[in-house]
Design a protein around this nucleic acid. Sequence first.
RNA 1: GCGCCGCUAGCUCAAUUGGCAGAGCAACUGACUCUUAAUCAGUAGGUUCUAGGUUCGAUUCCUAGGCGGCGCACCA
Length: 497
Amino acid sequence: MSEAPEHHLEAARREALAELRRRGVEPFAYRYDRTHSAADALAAYAPDGEESVRVAGRLVALRGHGKTMFAHLEDASGRIQLYFRRDELGDDRYEMVRLLHVGDLVGVDGKVFMTRTGEITVRAADVTLLAKAVRPLPIGKSDAEGRQHGGLVDHETRYRQRYADLAVHPEVREVFRLRARTVSYLRRFLDERGFLEVETPVLQPIYGGAMARPFTTHHLALDRQLYLRIATELYLKRCIVGGLERVYEIGKDFRNEGLDRSHNPEFTMLELYQAFADYEDMMALTEEMVEGVVRTLCGDARIERFGTALDFARPWRRATYRELVHRHAGLDLADTDDAALHAAVSAVSAGGTDPAGMSRPKLVDEVFKQYVEPALEQPTFVVDFPIELSPLAKPKRGDPTLAERFEFFVLGRELANAFSELNDPDDQRRRLEVQSAARAAGDQEAQVMDEDYVLALEYGLPPTGGIGLGIDRLVMLLAEQPSIRDVILFPQLRSEG
RNA sequence: GCGCCGCUAGCUCAAUUGGCAGAGCAACUGACUCUUAAUCAGUAGGUUCUAGGUUCGAUUCCUAGGCGGCGCACCA
């Protein structure tokens, strides 16, 4: 990119840059003493008397009128109009102003007044160039009716050059503020309840805690293959064995799967574990935590997203896996043979899914995904999953064919997964052996035996409840963004063609 | 991985049954001391995603590829 072609637009800016330097203006400053944000400066306006302010930000509009010039300056707080007059700035400084372009970063010292047309404006007494934009930013214009003209709409450019997307789209910056406030709320919520935030390895010799294919890497000094974690689960439960009692981690997991509107190869998960609790406690905690996030960030537990009115007020709907499959697929899992499951999957799959080689648990899971998930619009706990699909969860009291596990769904999408954590080391070993066998038989997403994890359980894991909550998906819901790429600052893309 | 759609000036978009590639904004020159899509006059700006093919001639038609969007599959 260092050999980027010089466009005529860029050439004009570079010529202005050179001219500024000839005039003794340093185009890239070290600092600026700002006294007011744009919003503060607007608020500082008083009809009687003119407040002095120093504002700083990016020029997003320039309107020259010969010996005067109007501009708009934008910073993190908003926009404010600037007014430059030759007779007030003097010839030299006014000539400098004429060398400015939209996109330049400037600081302006002046008094706040109101124009004849009623717009609060800073009348510039001095201008400082803070950074020359030698490349034009695609800043659009909006007309009196609010219609947008020009601007940056190409998705590819927006993702590849997120800095430009952010620079020209205040609403995109707002999505990431919402994301930060969401994470901040969750952290505060858990801290207040005695949870300890911990950091567990991203580089793991054995990966586990979820069904997924990992990224593989190599440590040179150890001459050892390592994996990027697909989950934090097994390390966090080791912390519970060690007596930390309540732990959580908010961090990236990495899964070597396809990319689409709701999947990025690295994504952010909150996992938390609480000793002496079971999945009923985790349901109560999830309800309280998520209702709190929604109320705090959206102002109400009832919100409308993607055209659907959603109500996050506790308690949420609860339904068992089995009754949902019965209701939406018309199949009673206790009394359905594999052939019927095959038929059900074949009936709805668009040809890509071939049920022929599927094990029964996979078939059941497929039926659930095809028939049940899309129907779960309102916040819903799906409880009591088949035990075969839940190798890290305790069997359900009274029915060992089921696991004490729930998933939390909104608008057809899984936001959280939780269980009463399996703490019997012998049972855990057996279940991981079944996974290993499936893996040997070709299931690339089956879990791997982790002897050290079983060893940890042998020392005694107290009864424990745990939750995994997908942060990106929660933010997608709150910010009403249909693509995960719109809630991840720098999403993964193919290399440029 | 599969299917559909898209890729033209810095940005947003036009255009040709296959016949010199255009507009608005941005830029440049000039006029303009309360404008706000400022206005007015003028100027400049293109590997039409890439590589082949068909053709007198391809931005347009065909083939392959790249990147992106959407859907499907996989997955969270």
